[in-house]
């Protein structure tokens, strides 16, 4: 019954929904202090032998603030150290828990279960390296007389007068770095691949990126792998600044092939 003059809210407008972080085995239990996006409670929706890690969220506006992104990743990465996790890309939202169970879990149960079996006891690490600019430029100049010649042409001369030579030199440097990146990425993947179950190169995200590779590592070989990374870092000291991220959920090992693949 609506009072006179009062406008009725639009029919069927949902104000809550179910955010899905990832898929886990059905026999896990949550610790009570697990927090999700925007500090929402985290819960499990179970079906058969699998479960979805979810939060009921308000649909009051867009999601994706920095805290939202880090909350999503932290929750999954922490879980991945303990149990196999299939991470969802950020932003997976369904209408309700019932929909999660019926459409996501029931409809894909066997496929998810098989994937969870595959990643049981494994975690991902991501190795990221950036060239030390001066070191890599010196390397390029000493290896390539043509580049060194171009450098002489522009040396201490104003940019307006040397623009073409600068562009040619810069393009040369860019290509030389690309070639080094390919070689260094391959070398790192091979060297560290001995301690990993699988590896996948990532696309560079910066012109001076030296290496970006994701590794899937057996849990009981983690320290071995980390030691091997430390050795690589030592070898590249002064040339490449390395960072190792992880252990994390295996984001790089659950993939989306193109349609029809």
């Amino acid at each position: 019954m609506t009072a006179p003059g009062q406008t009725r809210p639009a029919e069927k407008v949902r104000d809550t929904a179910c955010y899905v972080y990832g898929i886990l085995p059905g026999d896990v239990e949550l610790t009570p202090d697990a927090r999700g996006l925007r500090d929402y409670d985290v819960d499990l929706v179970r079906h058969g032998e699998i479960a979805a890690l979810v939060s009921d969220i308000d649909l009051g506006g867009p999601i994706g603030r920095p805290e939202d992104l880090t909350a999503h990743e932290r929750l999954l990465d922490d879980a991945a150290v303990e149990v196999p996790v299939l991470p969802m890309r950020f932003g997976a939202v369904l209408t309700s828990r019932e929909a999660v169970e019926r459409e996501l879990l029931a409809a894909n149960h066997d496929q998810f279960l098989a994937a969870l079996d595959e990643i049981e006891g494994r975690v991902e690490y991501t190795l990221k390296g950036r060239y030390e600019e001066r070191a890599v430029l010196r390397e390029i100049m000493s290896e390539n007389p043509d580049a060194a010649g171009l450098l002489e042409q522009i040396r201490d001369r104003p940019e307006e007068l040397t623009r073409d030579a600068r562009i040619r030199l810069g393009e040369f440097i860019n290509q030389a770095i690309s070639a080094k990146r390919d070689a260094d990425t391959q070398w790192a993947a091979q060297t560290l691949g001995e301690y990993a179950r699988a590896s996948v190169p990532r696309r560079p995200t910066h012109p001076e990126d030296a290496v970006q590779v994701a590794f899937l590592v057996e849990t009981d070989r983690r320290s071995e792998f980390e030691k091997a990374v430390a050795k690589v870092a030592e070898e590249w000291q002064g040339r490449v600044t390395l960072r190792l991220l992880g252990p994390m959920a295996p984001y790089d090992f659950v993939v989306t092939p193109s349609p029809g693949a």
């Binding site: 990832g22 990743e73 969802m88 950020f90 939202v93 459409e103 659950v254 989306t256």
Partner: peptide
Amino acid sequence: TILDKGLVIDAYV
């Protein structure tokens, strides 16, 4: 990582 990798829900639901 989380905007570029991971399972895409659209493919399942």
